[in-house]
Design a protein around this nucleic acid. Structure first.
Length: 272
DNA sequence: CAAGACTCCTGTCAGC
DNA sequence: TGCTGACAGGAGTCTT
């Protein structure tokens, strides 16, 4: 389940290998991902040179002069290189071949929650991307911005912060962790939290994500060879996946509830 | 507009 | 042992 750190690491891992390389062909064995892979992907990409690989939220853009291949890993997707003749397994849906490159970029996604899309021109104008909130690690995501967005909102802070129109890249795991670090109860209405506490929350989100990206590089450092298995550094997680276990701060057993079909774990003593 | 429910998909695991 | 059902989860879409 790639969160933003894994997507960033994936992007950084594949970019140096495919930059300035010419796409030879795209083999699509299973076009039915979250949405069908558009015909433009296999028809317009061959012959194109990759001139940049960038990330927006959890979307990766592989840009060429003809257009951009937009990739989302969903929750079970991964991208990695394999030797050219490596036989595909059942969930290996797409292979991207490059001219003169002695390896193939393979997309695997057992649950097919991921996507491959196509956008000509500026790829960030794609309708799924144009309305996304700011990147969490940029200055655009700051206390003044978040306070304005939260004003009047009755939605629980956890669900609010997981809304990609508010800010991208804060998935369930990191929402739980950042709320614990900030000492904020996940069920607290977003609009009722003081500006001072929201400011702490902003800092905690940045801290948690930055640390995870730093670790993500380590977690997935072998993924280029196709062996990477992200573990989210479970020992680093303070609340996620630790229901009923003692709070690392006060030893009280952590509580688990459900918010919008998502599991939330928190410490009723430390998070107010 | 806001908020919640529903949906896609399959591996994993608990329960019988 | 094998089957059934619940569950997880990103995020778009539908409903209220």
């Amino acid at each position: 389940m790639p969160e933003l750190p894994e997507v960033e690491t994936t992007k950084n891992g594949i970019a140096p290998h495919i930059l300035n390389q010419t796409i030879e062909r795209i083999d699509i064995r299973q076009p039915k991902l979250r949405w069908p892979i558009p015909d433009d992907v296999p028809t317009k990409l061959p012959g194109q040179v990759v001139h940049s690989v960038t990330r927006r939220g959890k979307y990766i853009g592989v840009q060429t002069d003809a257009g951009t291949l937009i990739i989302h890993l969903g929750m079970s997707g991964s991208l990695y290189f394999v030797a050219p003749e490596t036989p595909p397994m059942f969930h290996d849906h797409v292979d991207i071949h490059f001219a003169g490159l002695n390896k193939v970029l393979r997309y695997t996604d057992p649950r097919r929650f991921g996507a491959m899309l196509w956008q000509e021109g500026d790829w960030q104008t794609h309708e799924l991307i144009a309305h996304l909130g700011p990147e969490p690690l940029t200055d655009a995501f700051n206390i003044d911005y978040l306070y304005e967005k939260a004003k009047g909102r009755k939605q629980a802070i956890k669900q609010f912060i997981m809304d990609s129109k508010i800010v991208v890249g804060v998935g369930n795991i990191y929402a739980n962790e950042a709320l614990f670090m900030a000492g904020i109860r996940p069920t607290h209405a977003a609009g009722n939290i003081s500006k001072a506490r929201l400011a702490v929350f902003v800092d905690c989100i940045k801290t948690v994500l930055a640390a995870a990206i730093a670790q993500g590089g380590t977690t997935l450092k072998d993924f280029v060879s196709g062996e990477g298995k992200p573990g989210y550094f479970k020992q680093e997680l303070k609340v996620y996946g630790r229901a009923e276990q003692p709070c690392v701060t006060c030893q009280a057993p952590l509580k688990e509830i459900r918010q919008g079909q998502r599991s939330t774990v928190y410490c009723a003593h430390c998070q107010k």
